[in-house]
Design a protein around this nucleic acid. Structure first.
Length: 533
DNA sequence: CCCCCTTTGAAGGAA
DNA sequence: TTCCTTCAAAGGGGG
């Protein structure tokens, strides 16, 4: 791992993650021969930290913190910054794939609905495509490799530039990430990105073009893409470079628009231009988010599920079932994302996006709105905290296939009143479920943990093979949070029941190949097994 | 139209 | 240092 480096990690959470992985070492069996060792992963993670700090010229970090809230002069600033940084990094890993481009790049057929993962296919997943852009673009190299039928064998930090043949003057990881050239946007012709993309094995320009032009609604032809890239006002980085992290201040819809319109409807975007509002700079995606983006389509295709909540649950379990090596890829990617993001928006702070558009970055949402939201969440929290550790929502308790047992609000996807009422409804099933799928998440800390994910295992076990097998969980604890707490005594509790082990074990591998399975069916099956045992 | 749901990870603030 | 909170993506569905 080229990037590994010296120690000194600090806090990106890498260390913690490291620990988590270590602890989970028991599951070596799960790990591929060439899989990373825990230490490797740890190193990788720590390197994330180090690298980001190193790469980021000290000033960057300083600036970032010191100038928070100060959004002025993005263009110049960033340009400067990039200039400075672009020369010190090596990488070039994602050089070719700029954010804007990735949606087109990264989708291996693995995403094609109903298609088996075949290495030979160059097609881009239609499904994925529909989702528009996606940060993984930057990962093209990764994805390409990642989705190959055989386990990945490339080091995480391959210098993609070599493969891609992309120009070096770009700043490595970062600028390249977004197809930025050190000099600024103008220099980077969108086509450049595409060209470089073509370098990736299995991804010929033609393939992309054809696939996309045919699938992209509204896009008469791929050739338009470049233009939209350059013109799209929204989501455009001050430097003029479109970036997924930049979204129009209006929120969800805009976001979507950004995703799609950006490439497909430049004109529409042009209209938006009228609004001089500052774009919202979104948080960089974390490893799991990247994974989700990548796999969502696949899960949808396989499980015929549509609800994101359910899909996300499946994805969460799959995430835990991933080998360290696989997860490492995403961590690495996420790291790159963060780095790039940091370099592009040195003054940006995560804080900018939540308390609101407070910093003025978030356009439309008013402080009041944010305040409301905040309050709401707080209330929600209190509700749950009032009954910590108690079984949670009906959904989690009974699963999707037992909705008849749900309370009204749960059926409407609202707050579970049963739970609020003291959560008297415990069901054997729930305990089983929790035991079985629960990730080793050792700590109940974060907000989401209030909900006890372990108990939430909705029916979704969904896509039957939802990998999440107990062993899997133990094999790879969620690196993140697991960490620190693990250090203080491993709260992880072994699954109370292992009855599903066999099933689950078979699940992971079989997963990809199984025909689309109805989530409901899957859920039913899982539950059945569970209850029987 | 807005919000909820659900997942993990990262970041920032409070204690 | 630890804990807590918020946000990131996604999209069906409820109000």
């Amino acid at each position: 791992m080229p990037q590994l480096s010296s120690g000194g990690g600090d806090d990106l959470g890498a260390n913690d993650e490291m620990i988590a992985f270590k602890d989970e070492g028991e599951q070596e069996e799960k790990i591929p021969e060439n899989a990373f060792t825990e230490r490797d992963l740890a190193d990788l993670k720590s390197s994330l930290v180090n690298e980001s700090e190193i790469n980021q010229s000290p000033s960057a970090a300083a600036v970032r913190r010191g100038q928070q809230g100060e959004q002025r002069g993005y263009a110049e600033k960033h340009r400067e910054h990039l200039d400075g940084v672009s020369k010190q990094q090596d990488g070039g890993m994602y050089k070719a794939a700029g954010y804007p481009t990735y949606p087109f790049l990264m989708l291996p057929d693995a995403y094609l609905p109903n298609s088996s993962v075949s290495p030979s296919s160059n097609k881009v997943s239609v499904v994925q495509q529909s989702h528009g852009m996606h940060p993984l673009t930057s990962l093209l190299p990764y994805s390409n490799e990642h989705f190959s039928p055989s386990p990945p064998h490339l080091p995480l930090d391959i210098d993609m530039s070599q493969k891609t043949g992309v120009h070096r003057h770009q700043s490595q990881d970062l600028s390249g990430y977004y197809s930025l050239s050190s000099g600024g946007v103008g220099q980077i012709a969108p086509s450049m990105s595409w060209q470089s993309q073509s370098v990736y094995p299995g991804l010929s320009p033609c393939g992309f073009r054809q696939t996309y032009s045919s699938n992209l609604p509204g896009a008469s032809s791929y050739s338009r893409f470049p233009h939209s890239l350059m013109l799209g006002p929204s989501g455009m980085h001050p430097t003029g470079i479109p970036h997924p992290a930049i979204v129009p201040p209006t929120g969800k819809q805009e976001h979507e628009q950004y995703d799609r319109g950006m490439y497909v409807k430049p004109q529409v975007e042009a209209k938006r231009e009228k609004e001089p509002k500052k774009p919202v700079i979104k948080k960089p995606l974390n490893a799991f988010m990247l994974y989700m983006k990548e796999m969502r389509a696949k899960v949808i295709a396989e499980c015929t599920l549509k609800e994101s909540a359910a899909i996300n649950q499946i994805l969460g379990r799959r995430w835990h079932a991933l080998s360290r090596e696989e997860q490492a890829k995403y961590y690495e990617l996420a790291r790159k994302e963060r780095q790039l993001h940091m370099q592009l928006y040195p003054t940006w702070s995560a804080r900018d996006n939540y308390e609101a558009g407070l910093s003025g970055v978030a356009g439309e949402k008013s402080k009041a709105d944010w305040g409301k939201k905040k309050r709401r969440k707080r209330e929600k929290q209190q509700d749950s905290s009032a009954d910590p550790g108690s079984p949670k929502k009906c959904r989690a308790r009974f699963g999707l296939n037992q909705q008849t047992d749900w309370c009204g609000p749960c059926r409407r996807k609202k707050k579970c009143i049963r739970y609020l009422q003291g959560g008297g409804c415990s069901s054997p099933a729930s305990s089983d479920l929790s035991a079985i799928d629960s990730p080793p998440s050792p700590s109940p800390s974060p907000s989401r943990h209030r909900l006890h994910p372990q108990l939430q295992r909705p029916a979704s076990p969904g896509c039957s093979p939802p990998p999440a097998s107990p062993s899997a969980h133990f094999a790879l604890s969620p690196p993140a949070r697991a960490h620190t707490r693990l250090a203080h005594g491993d709260p992880r509790q072994p699954p109370t029941k292992h009855s599903l082990v066999g099933l689950e074990l078979s699940g992971k591998r079989a997963f990809g190949s199984t025909a689309p399975l109805s989530a409901a069916k899957a859920a039913g099956l899982s539950l059945k097994v569970l209850t029987e045992t």
